[in-house]
Design a protein around this nucleic acid. Structure first.
Lengths: 338, 338
DNA sequence: GCGCATTGCCGAATCGATTTGGCAGGCATC
DNA sequence: GATGCCTGCCAAATCGATTCGGCAATGCGC
């Protein structure tokens, strides 16, 4: 028994003006006497009017919806839904930031998987935010082909607007931090190198090593999961001529695997090996024995900035934009001397 | 330089019929000759026509958007965005299931925080899914007051459509499982008791105990976080007259805390104490020393069912519906004898 | 007091679909 | 052969906003 929605017609009738004038008064456009405008605004407030998003957008030729998609394949279609297997927390926080900001700016943000059939997908939204874009993302390709506005979080080879962290500085600051605690030779533990952030971290790491004449140690897990990573790091830690005293990991799961391996080998953290994750997550706060130092990528902020950027692009204010979100280091027990 | 969107006018012109006939042919309504209909459909496919959601919904008097909100306060507004502190993975999976199903059925699903200013919020969507509804959720109250369709995942005191797990059976099966492994006296470790799932688990636990003449042991954490929970469970485990040989926890974080405490006390899991989490999460798979047995609540499925239900409600097919999603038990090392 | 510009307001078109009512024409009925 | 009933199709109204063009009324300069 809900009463019919209040439309602009009701406001116009109540205020004794035409629909056109009511619209102009409410939007601050056109030529309307100040007194009339104020009256319309008062009436609108009194009757509880809110503009219908649909009609507004229909007129403006857009949908008022944005879409966020995650490019990497943690999102495998399994059963009926998505089954994200890692980085859940990071993506969730990005989504939270993006959703709220979109809403504040009059858009609704939905999350959909990259592998959704592209057709209906793209026509349902005005723009697209892709997180950790891979070069062969089909959805992203389709979006570019059809000229639909697109912003990525992280970079790929396409010439798009993006927002990203400064992973070079972040990685360097992590290395500097552990070196003040006596760790002079860090290893880098990674899984894949197709994402821009991993490549950035890798090159920052290599630069650091070469500037100091240290031989880099790159450890590579066959996959992002803890069970895939643990044997690798365990073997490396157990090696007779271990040539590193600390480990930087590109994923929180790899840090987790590292701590597990250290525990299994009865190595002390941070005494025998220091650990830094180059991406933070809730669990690192509670580690196994020790909490783990990590880079805070400020994912909420990444989502917000991406949405701001996307809206600017689709409003035609700018052609392309790039923005860097700073990183901070959450120092925890895994790198605390003493 | 993107070409103008293909509208139904284009299809009609190309097929040599009126817009009305084109619409009827495509929607299978009205009286249209089979040959004409087929021709229209073919033309639409050829020119790549997809109906504009906006116009469709404007006409139907709805928005085509649904909203998912999480009622508990892991979502504290901190800085500019949401900062979920626990259950992230569960909520994310629910959202995934809900988003995809909504999209398949012609809706877009957005996630917004409960504390968003209700006004614009509610008018932006046709219906609402609230996860773990609290009784005093302001958004939910507003939705009910304004008669907007609403489905909850978990139950509260309001008389709404809901989907929920069968926590009674789940809890009982967990208790049965550990008892076959020799654990005869389980403690229940919980944080708050305002959510329906906790109350269900609690009463199932009490039933189990009383049926067997066991004195129940309820342990209560001051909060959901690991650091809040650990001292409590540690004290209980260290107690001289410990009266339990296993622990059921209502949250994954509490299970985590339990394993940490056991490790700190040098207790063997599952030898000295078995652990079961009544909600699964990725990290339980990798535990600390041992992986932790947990109930799989099938959150993706919960999201899907909630959306199906919501759409049925708002299409007026049903007044109210309730559905139960079964639970399964993921057995892991923390309860494996031997 | 005559033009001209400006101000304030409104009618009507528009966005892209759906839906209603009705117009022809064909066919069966009596 | 007039009547009535389908069938197939379409013109026009509708949803709720925005926006353009134009019409009066007013103000201003000379």
């Amino acid at each position: 028994m809900q009463s019919r929605r209040v439309t602009i017609k009701d406001v116009a009738r109540e205020a004794g003006v035409s629909v056109a004038t009511a619209s102009e008064a409410l939007n601050g456009k056109g030529r309307v006497a100040a007194s009339t405008r104020q009256n319309v605004i008062d009436v609108a407030a009194r009757v509880g009017y809110t503009a219908n998003r649909l009609a507004k957008n229909l007129n403006a030729g857009r949908t008022g919806s944005l879409v966020l998609a995650v490019s990497p394949q943690p999102f495998t279609a399994q059963g009926a839904g998505l089954q994200p297997e890692w980085d859940i927390e990071y993506y969730f926080r990005v989504l939270n930031g993006a959703s709220l900001r979109a809403f504040e700016r009059g858009f609704l943000m939905s999350m959909l998987p990259t592998h959704t059939s592209s057709r209906g997908f793209l026509s349902a939204a005005d723009g697209l935010v892709v997180v950790d874009p891979s070069d062969d993302d089909p959805l992203l390709a389709e979006a570019i082909r059809s000229g639909r506005p697109c912003v990525t979080i992280g970079r790929n080879s396409a010439d798009l607007s993006w927002v990203d962290n400064d992973f070079a500085t972040g990685t360097t600051s992590a290395l500097a931090h552990i070196s003040t605690n006596g760790a002079s030779r860090a290893a880098l533990f990674l899984s894949e190198t197709s994402s821009s952030y991993v490549r950035d971290e890798l090159s920052a790491y290599l630069d650091w090593c070469s500037a100091r004449g240290i031989e880099p140690v790159i450890l590579r897990s066959p996959g992002p999961r803890v069970d895939e990573a643990e044997p690798v790091i365990r073997a490396a830690l157990a090696s007779d001529d271990r040539r590193f005293d600390s480990v930087l990991t590109t994923l929180d799961t790899l840090a987790h695997a590292t701590e597990r391996a250290a525990m299994a080998l009865d190595l002390d953290v941070p005494g025998d090996v220091q650990i830094v994750s180059l991406a933070d997550s809730r669990y690192l706060d509670y580690g196994l024995r020790k909490s783990i130092t990590a880079l805070d990528l400020h994912p909420v902020r990444l989502g917000e900035v991406a949405v701001d950027m996307l809206i600017e692009v689709l409003e035609g204010n700018v052609e392309r934009r790039r923005e860097v979100v700073p990183i901070s280091l959450n120092v925890r027990e895994s790198t605390l001397a003493g």
